[in-house]
């Protein structure tokens, strides 16, 4: 059993702060690292993989600093985000080379086992350059587990996988987590993370925005204030009716540069709002022409979590 700990970790590149004061503890089981692109997930994984020194704070594996210590790779396996491998080598030879580089006592049997685990035995003799994206991902996975590491770090492992491969990798991660390994994988897709990770760490703009059980994160995300832009047959009447409702916290009448007016509504209770709106419109004889959620992008959901 291994524990990776980040204590008040920051990392900056010149004037850009990529990771800002993050404290996190990874125990056994599967943890999902969720955040939009550019949130600092890869920087964090690079620090946990010992490739990047924190500018401030400490990153340790069972109390040992990870940076510049090649010995940690006996316990750590890494699936990098980038796809490039040694393309002129067959899948078998590449996984076998990785087993040999780990100086395993029986590299052939370790490579065979790892390739079987990722179900690549049928294609193992083909050169890597002929593999599909999903096959490359599985061979990458085989190289990371060939030495049976206690810690497995995966950077966006589901990228480019079809649903069947995705399902298979999810099952595999579950299995490895159940065996008592510490597994962290990054993703920018909530649905992907919540299907396998018992625990989720959310990163936004370099900051550790939220941490915990996925149900808790999901609740925070759905219960945040929602912005809507509504066009109707009588915006002013709708606005006055809306502000009287307890589920809203702000209403604004706006006119865009083309002279089209609209009502901007801030709803504090998503569920109450979606029930109240049609009821109000009907009661006041207002026709709803357009109801448009204004801030449904993942970034805005994450930004909300940061500003809490």
């Amino acid at each position: 059993m291994s524990v990776v700990e980040l204590d008040k970790v920051s990392r900056w590149f010149g004037n850009v702060v990529a990771v800002n004061d993050v404290t996190m503890r990874l125990d056994t089981g599967v943890t999902g690292l969720l955040g939009p692109n550019g949130a600092g997930k890869s920087t964090l994984i690079n620090m946990m993989a010992g490739f990047l020194a924190p500018s401030a704070g400490t990153v340790t594996l069972d109390g040992r600093p990870l940076y510049r210590d090649p010995e940690i790779y006996r316990e750590v396996g890494l699936v990098p985000e980038r796809e490039e491998m040694y393309d002129a080598v067959s899948g078998w030879n590449f996984v076998l080379a990785n087993a040999k580089l780990h100086q395993l006592p029986d590299p052939e049997s370790a490579a065979r086992q790892a390739i079987a685990t990722v179900e690549m035995a049928d294609a193992q003799d083909r050169d890597i350059r002929t593999y599909s994206k999903g096959m490359k991902q599985r061979i990458k996975m085989a190289t990371a587990i060939v030495h049976e590491p206690t810690v497995l770090l995966l950077d966006e492992p589901f990228n480019g996988m079809d649903p069947r491969q995705r399902m298979h990798l999810m099952e595999l991660l579950h299995e490895l987590g159940d065996q008592g390994r510490t597994i962290l994988f990054s993703s920018h897709i909530l649905e992907e993370v919540e299907q396998i990770a018992a625990r989720i760490e959310v990163m936004v703009s370099g900051r550790h925005a939220a941490s915990g059980d996925f149900r808790e994160i999901r609740r925070l995300m759905t219960q945040r204030p929602h912005q809507y832009t509504i066009r109707s047959s009588d915006d002013r009447a709708l606005a006055s009716a809306m502000i009287a409702e307890p589920c809203t916290s702000g209403v604004e009448l706006s006119v865009d540069p083309h002279g089209v007016s609209a009502v901007q509504v801030q709803a504090t209770d998503y569920s109450a709002f979606v029930h109240a709106l049609p009821r109000l419109a009907s009661r006041h004889g207002i026709r709803l022409l357009e109801v448009h959620p204004a801030d449904e992008s993942l970034e805005s959901v994450f930004s909300y979590l940061v500003s809490r």
Binding site: A49, F51, P70, E71, Y73, R74, V76, G77, L78, P80, R82, E84, M85, Y86, N98, L101, H102, Q103, T143
Partner: peptide
Amino acid sequence: EGSIVYLLAKPLNR
């Protein structure tokens, strides 16, 4: 290309 990571993520003397 980044494939050097497969050598660096090993217990090998640089």
